[in-house]
């Protein structure tokens, strides 16, 4: 595919943080592509680097102690890594919208919802105050907030969690961004509200042609929302591909493990399979595969050599994909179609 088919393309990104006694390699060589008008889900446990990855693209990680040591990220044809903070600021909010797990902390508690959204419209789109107000009402209606004319003049604390997340979405799409980054948007919400918000995001995607990066730890949300999936573990993308590849042809033991650990509505699934242990601390990542210590199929090579990425559109970083590896529960990718 050509470059212009991608809304956002990230290559070989690496982010480090200085801490007491050493360096945490939070993101180690992450690449992914976000197709235009599609949803890319980045899945992983806390501490796997999924939030740091997108925050570093947006210039939202504190530097120091953080720093981007390598990589590039192109929004359309524009590079995001290494540009001046002011330029990044202009892109953030205007061309990339963001919503967070906790909308309360992203909104100013002393300003009405309407004013906060209107301010963005005035700054980024140069609207007049009255035009902005009309636009805010339209945005609130779009995000299915009832009585937008009344809600407009309310403060964040007067909104419930679900309503606040809707307001946050209204704010993030106010400038008609190309890309929407949703960082665990429904983790703090109840399942019934989660269902409402996810549906809203799907509707906005089809009406506005939004490209969405959805960060989550919940494979259920991924299954509902994603077109493409990148599974992250220990600061790396361990498997990536189309959503059906990931769910029905899992090529990495970690993805298999995640799926087995998910509860299901399927009455036949009577037992949860767990992945034992905890992810490695990226303060001192293991020399080989980060998952080797928790992997039932671990081989000698996994312990001391990091696996390469096998596959092309469906990729996996796992030695089990090597032609020399024995048969295993993971789906074998076409080994002659290796990534370069």
């Amino acid at each position: 595919m050509m470059t212009h088919d991608y809304a956002l393309q990230v290559d070989n990104l690496a982010v480090e943080f200085d801490t007491y006694g050493g360096v945490v390699q939070a993101v180690r060589d992450v690449s992914f592509k976000l197709r235009k008008g599609k949803t890319l889900a980045i899945v992983g446990e806390s501490g796997c680097g999924k939030s740091v990855t997108v925050q570093s693209l947006m210039g939202l990680i504190p530097m120091p102690p953080g720093r981007i040591t390598r990589g590039s990220a192109r929004l359309g044809n524009d590079e995001l890594i290494g540009i001046a903070p002011a330029a990044l600021n202009a892109i953030r909010g205007k061309r990339i919208g963001m919503i967070f797990q906790d909308p309360m902390s992203a909104l100013n508690p002393t300003m009405t919802i309407g004013r906060q959204i209107a301010e963005t419209l005035v700054v980024h789109r140069g609207l007049s105050a009255s035009a902005a107000r009309a636009e805010v009402i339209e945005l609130l209606r779009l995000t299915q907030i009832s009585q937008p004319e009344k809600r407009l003049d309310q403060y964040p604390f007067e909104f419930s969690g679900g309503m606040l997340q809707r307001a946050m979405i209204a704010l993030s799409i106010a400038c008609k961004p190309e890309v929407l980054i949703a960082d665990e948007p429904t983790t703090a919400l109840d399942v019934t509200i989660q269902a409402q918000i996810l549906l809203l995001l799907q509707e906005l995607q089809s009406s506005h042609g939004l490209s969405i990066i959805l960060i989550t730890h919940d494979l259920g949300v991924v299954a509902r929302m994603a077109h493409d999936v990148a599974v992250m573990y220990a600061g790396q993308v361990v498997e990536s591909g189309l959503v059906d590849d990931i769910f029905y042809r899992s090529a990495h033991p970690y993805t298999l493990g995640l799926r087995a650990a998910m509860p299901s509505n399927d009455p036949r699934k009577r037992q949860l399979q767990i992945i034992p242990g905890s992810p490695p601390d990226l303060f001192a990542p293991p020399p080989g595969c980060g998952f080797a210590d928790r992997c039932a199929q671990a081989m000698r090579v996994c312990r001391d050599t990091p696996p390469p990425a096998y596959g092309h559109t469906h990729q996996a970083r796992c030695w089990l994909q090597d032609p020399l590896a024995p048969a295993s529960p993971v789906t074998s990718l076409m080994v002659n179609n290796k990534a370069d």
Binding site: G220, A223, R224, A226, V243, F247, Y248, M262, N265
Partner: peptide, 9 residues
């Protein structure tokens, strides 16, 4: 309401 980890479903 609970999403099922099964894209087809």
């Amino acid at each position: 309401s609970n999403p099922e980890p099964d894209p087809e479903h």
